[in-house]
Amino acid sequence: MATLTMTTLDPQSKAARRGLSDLAIRNLFIIPTIIFLIVFNIFPLLYSLGYSFTDFRASSNAPANFVGLDNYRTLLNDPFIWSNFAITAKYVIVSVAGQVVVGFGVALLLNREIPFKGLITTLLLLPMMLSMAVVGLFWKLLYDPSFGIINYAFGLGRFEWLSNPDMALYAVALTDIWMWSPFVMLLSLAGLSAVPKHLYEAAAIDRAGPIYTFFRITLPLVAPILMIAIIFRTMEAFKTFDLAYILTSQPTTEVISIRLYKMAFQEWQTGMSCALAYIVLIMVIAITNIYVKYLNKVKER
């Protein structure tokens, strides 16, 4: 077997004796990356785990005092933090649901013989490649109540988007939907094009209606890939910072990342913010786990 000879090269062979051994090359190629990631990702996390048990403030010279689990207790009993999580949850649901509806919808339309399909698909994908912060900023002009093109195009008069506390979160979500529906569309298109044509032909012979065909053939076969898109977007929406931070400063749009940023770099409650960071981290790890499981599932197909 060719694979076997490659992975376990006979140490006595000529190829192995020339130059570095396979084992040395493997270690040389892999270990620096692992060390780099441990030093710059894991070590900082351990560092902040330590601070999360203290009342340290990075703005003062006072030494950090050990306070045990006090920070965690305070945070979990703080109704304002829970409202930040509630805002985040609302944002995730609105934004991801919007992306799935728009993205999957456009993918269904595109999954036909459309002239210039390749070019149109590339153009539609453009928003997700752009910088959230920089393009997000420009949406401030688009949303402007007096001279924004959104109000003009849809005849909304002087509708307040970003300065209205009840609307601001939806406005941020709308921009996010514009940016990331293309992502759902891209993955959905891959799923749709993988559905075997003969299934549709068989359904047509059986005189199955379009609705029946959609729910019995299309949706079940696209579901795994769509699920990947949903979990990935959920994870990203949960971490969202750029858009909401740039577009508004309403308390109703203070998602958890913004609260964390303010706590750490504006109020300088370093110890407390490290504790909050850990609470967020545990949630992200949970979602990541689900994501990777699905990724491997699709990969095995």
């Binding site: 990356t33 692992i34 990631l37 710059f40 990702n41 894991i42 900082p44 996390l45 560092y47 902040s48 601070y51 990075a58 994870m235 971490k239 910072f241 990342s257 964390l260 940023y261 750490a264 770099f265 370093t270 913010s273 490290c274 960071a277 967020v280 981290l281 992200v284 790890i285 990541t288 994501y291 990777v292």
Partner: peptide, 20 residues
């Protein structure tokens, strides 16, 4: 493990990195 480092929220990593 390698993939999971990508999923960390930037602000979470930024706090200790800023101090370091």
């Amino acid at each position: 493990f390698i993939l999971s480092t990508r999923m960390l929220p930037p602000v979470v990593v930024a706090i200790p990195m800023f101090l370091m």
